[in-house]
Nucleic acid binder design. Structure first.
Length: 901
DNA sequence: GACCTGGAATAATGT
DNA sequence: GAACATTATTCCAGG
């Protein structure tokens, strides 16, 4: 691990990964999946007085001792402070429709009476550096705020740069494209300068991959905590110390087709089971969020993404501009600036923030130059003015400034908050052949209707234009994040009507598209193509553990940052339906886009219309029920109506389910098969009990929710799975369900942590995505069993009980088994949590207290029927007993996990 | 001439 | 390890 020396009180955004003791980092809790509200200046200043970066914590997954210890960090390291989280009655997991305020990091009460916010990451950073790619950054604000922060004091000395670089990553197979990342040409193409020596500014990956680690076993244990946090190479904006030109020239002939750097073996879940000697010495690839996506692994593997939410948040805090272009080959940035001035290539990573680049591109030249003068780093060049004047913010408070910390690209955000909703009005086509760097553009992504995708922001009534950010995200229903092997490609030309603008954020190209009130805040996305990066290039990136092979589905991810009157910024995000990007798949594989019915009683018999592509007359539709280990418990070919066959639609008769007596919905899958190895992805389908509602405690509402709400439906379905040792009722947000505008069955993934591979004791942070998607991405709604530490509760299986870990008390109110308020006759989970919340509030307990849920009984015959939930009303004084007991269990779990992970 | 598009050759990789 | 199948990447040609 590289050593860093940091000016003690330097108010600069510094990556705290290697600086922060592992325990502290472990304890840091993020909430990356809710509308991101940037802090007001007042709040910033409050924290600034004590720390540069303060991470408010609520230890949903950590024991309290960690929390305590973390406080020590504050004194030992001025970079980090952990601020206990106060209670907040409105958390993030609430109904996005009626609890808009819940999305805000609303100030509560600090110990001294000052407002205290709910758990989050606070970055108090040097302004200029952290203006981020925020086009609302206003010059006036700059002048007001900059003097408060000593920009020039920010230093980050990272000696041993060479040793920090992992020699194993000096790839003999690095290609021209990778080389181009650091070439002058690339900087010319991208408007930016991309200094070469990234590793020293990329501490995030280091805990796991540091080549200085010479004793794997020892380092393994020593770094495991850190690795849990930083295991995602994707989250390291500097994961790739690109091989230099000389290195590559030495070892490879230009233009030779590179061989894949890793020939990997995968187990049934697509996990990597053997490692190339070139691979970075990351201790546990199983922690990697990057696993190949295969037919077998398409279904939930969210347990693999442990702590990815935290990593995502770390990524958001990362302030590394150095190799943000790393991994973006030359051509991927080619379109950015045919008309831009040549730029110098500077390598001093003085101003250590990738957001600066965004800032550079977002600001008009004048503003930017002004800021540049203020900043100590001047290696960034201006961007010529665009015909569209990238939006400036309203004149906010003179003392306010835009927070540096726009949410990282792999944070999960909702599509709706309060009056605002970001919606994809026209979805892209399910196929788009991405182009390689060696090819010419293959044009913009089109809509299935023939036009182009359309995105619209609803509820925005201001006159200020906004900007939509677009990047290419993963399409598997794990944590949505930027796709490692695809980048958005800016399309220009006379056929393109939409202005766009490229920037790069943490290795990811982002297209910025104006969202104008005169266009009803609607943008036609006719300027976005998709570039395919060579697998070998990406896989060679340091720390990259995902593979590109068969990982050819992407989503368009749109974001909008909405300035709020209080100076904060609300960020909404929505992702498109998956897009298959391979040529072959586009020609051969059947692809299901829609189905007319998501669920039906076990008797079956009803006709279901499946629409998609590449259907044949002899296409088969197979219904399967899968065990967590992937084995097919049941498989049945559905009858298809040959006469009604079309290449883009099939009429299928829903087969009867194998068990006609289920008492709760059962989720199965189906796929279209055109022959051997030519299958569509799995689609979800839910068999409903023949007659009875399932949840007796709240039969009507729950049942209806199950019927009408995809995520809830899935959640209930999961409950019915016989694989659970405990039946778990999923918390669900009915509000988010109401938001759902697309069929949940569009997605095929079932987020199930019930897999035998997923330890029930592990808090799978990444599974947040599922819950989050329930909120933010109706088209891909999923419901996970656990929630990350971030804004929503985590359900953790413990022996004989179910524990809910709200990451902070304020979020507990969103743990709901049913939409309606609990009645006194059955103190529902929500009711208990409210008790807890109130108690915690009274006690001003800053840390998360796990909450006890009523015990659920294992289905005795393992036959799909959980015993109806009976929720016993406990005396209020038992709450603390529960808390204590559960805390103890969690401590034990965590300590054992830390040892065994 | 640049871009877009479809097709296919060929290498790499997996079974 | 060979044969075959599948996938990735590059190349070509036409619009």
């Amino acid at each position: 691990m590289p050593r860093t020396s940091v000016a003690a009180a330097a108010p600069c955004s510094l990556p705290f990964g290697p600086l922060l003791p592992a325990r502290a980092r472990d304890a840091v809790e993020f909430q990356p999946f809710f509308p991101f509200i940037m802090k007001s200046a007042e709040e910033e200043n409050y924290n600034y007085a004590s720390s540069n970066l303060s991470a408010s914590l609520s230890l949903g997954v950590m024991n309290s001792s960690l929390s305590t210890s973390c406080h020590g960090v504050q004194s030992s390291n001025p970079i980090i402070s952990i601020i206990p989280s106060a209670s907040n009655s409105s958390g993030y997991g609430g109904n996005p429709e009626n609890e808009a305020s819940g999305y805000y990091l609303s100030p509560n009460v600090r110990p001294n009476g000052a407002p205290l916010e709910s758990p989050r990451i606070e970055i108090t950073s040097c302004l200029g550096i952290h203006s981020g790619n925020n086009q609302f950054f206003h010059e006036g604000d700059v002048e007001e705020s900059i003097p408060k922060r000593t920009l020039s004091t920010a230093t980050l000395n990272l000696p041993n740069v060479d040793t920090y670089r992992d020699p194993s990553c000096l790839s003999p197979a690095s290609s021209l494209s990778s080389r181009s990342c650091n070439s002058e040409a690339s900087s010319f193409e991208s408007n930016y300068s991309y200094p070469y020596t990234s590793p020293q500014t990329s501490p995030w990956q280091s805990p796991c991959v540091s080549p200085k680690t010479t004793e794997p076993d020892e380092s393994y244990h020593r770094n495991m905590v850190a690795c849990n946090l930083v295991n995602s190479p994707r989250h390291s904006p500097s994961t790739s110390p690109r091989t230099s030109i000389s290195e590559e020239n030495w070892l490879t002939a230009p233009n030779s087709r590179p061989t894949s750097p890793f020939k990997r073996k995968y187990n049934i879940n697509g996990r990597q089971t053997s490692y190339s000697p070139h691979h970075s010495p990351t201790p546990s690839p199983h922690n990697s969020p990057r696993v190949s996506i295969t037919e077998e692994t398409w279904l939930g593997n969210t347990h693999q993404y442990t702590n990815s939410a935290i990593v995502a948040a770390i990524n958001a805090l990362t302030t590394d501009p150095i190799d943000m272009n790393d991994g973006i080959p030359i051509k991927s940035r080619k379109t950015a600036l045919d008309h831009t001035p040549t730029m110098a290539l500077k390598t001093e990573p003085i101003c250590d923030d990738h957001d600066t680049l965004s800032l550079a591109t977002d600001l008009q030249s004048e503003d930017f130059y002004h800021i540049r003068k203020t900043m100590s780093c001047d290696q960034y060049l201006s961007v010529p003015q665009h015909p569209y004047h990238w939006a400036k913010p309203k004149n906010i408070s003179p003392t306010s400034y835009m927070s540096p910390s726009l949410p990282a690209l792999d944070w999960h955000l909702p599509s709706q908050s309060g009056p605002y909703e970001l919606r994809i009005e026209v979805q892209p086509k399910s196929h788009h052949r991405a182009h390689y760097e060696t090819e010419g553009s293959r044009g913009a992504v089109k809509a299935s209707t023939g036009g182009h995708p359309i995105v619209q922001l609803h509820g925005y009534l201001e006159s200020e234009p906004l900007t939509i950010q677009l990047f290419i995200g993963t399409a598997d229903d794990r944590l949505l994040r930027p796709h490692a092997f695809y980048q958005v490609h800016r399309i220009t030309g006379k056929t393109v009507s939409t202005t766009s603008h490229e920037t790069i954020i943490s290795n990811t190209k982002v297209l910025e598209i104006p969202l104008l009130p005169e266009n009803s805040m609607k943008a036609i996305i006719d300027c976005a193509g998709i570039l395919k990066l060579r697998n070998s290039d990406i896989e060679l990136r340091k720390g990259e553990t995902d593979i590109g092979r068969k990982n050819t589905r992407v989503r368009l991810v749109f974001r909008v940052h909405i300035p709020q009157a209080n100076g904060r910024t609300l960020t909404l995000q929505v992702a498109s339906n998956p897009i298959e990007c391979s040529q072959r798949s586009a020609q051969e594989l059947p692809l299901v886009e829609k189905q007319s019915i998501d669920s039906f009683p076990v008797s079956g018999g009803k006709k279901m219309i499946v629409t998609g592509h590449n259907f044949h007359q002899d296409s088969k539709v197979i219904f399967v029920e899968k065990a967590p280990d992937g084995h097919h418990v049941w498989e049945m070919e559905a009858k298809t109506d040959k006469e009604m066959f079309k290449s883009n639609s099939l009429v299928v008769e829903i087969p009867p389910f194998r068990n006609q007596r289920i008492s709760s919905p059962v989720q199965v899958n189906f796929y279209v098969c055109n022959g051997k190895r030519k299958r569509s992805q799995y689609q979800q389908f839910t068999y409903l009990p023949a007659n009875v509602p399932i949840i007796k405690t709240e039969p009507t509402d729950d049942y209806e929710s199950a019927q009408t709400c995809g995520p809830m439906n899935q959640g209930l379905t999961q409950l019915s799975k016989p694989y659970y040792s405990q039946q778990i009722l999923m918390p669900s947000d009915p509000g988010s369900c109401l938001v759902s505008g697309f069929t949940s069955c569009q997605q095929r993934n079932t987020v199930m942590s019930s897999s035998p591979n997923s330890s029930p004791k592990l808090h799978d942070l990444s599974s947040s995505s599922s819950y989050n998607k329930c909120i933010s991405n109706p088209g891909h709604s999923q419901l996970g069993l656990q929630q990350p530490t971030g804004g929503v509760p985590i359900i953790q299986e413990v022996p004989r009980s179910i524990v809910v870990h709200p990451s902070s008390p304020e979020q507990s109110s969103h743990i709901m088994l049913q939409p309606q308020p609990c009645s006194p006759t059955h103190s529902s989970v929500m009711g208990q949590q409210q008790h807890q919340q109130q108690k915690v509030q009274r006690n001003e307990s800053p840390t998360t207290q796990p909450l006890s849920l009523p015990e659920l009984h294992e289905d005795s015959n393992h036959n799909l029927a959980p015993i109806p939930v009976t929720i016993k009303c406990e005396p209020e004084e038992l709450d603390q007993m529960y808390l204590d007991d559960v805390n103890e269990i969690i401590r034990n779990d965590l300590s054992s996990n830390n040892v065994h992970t």
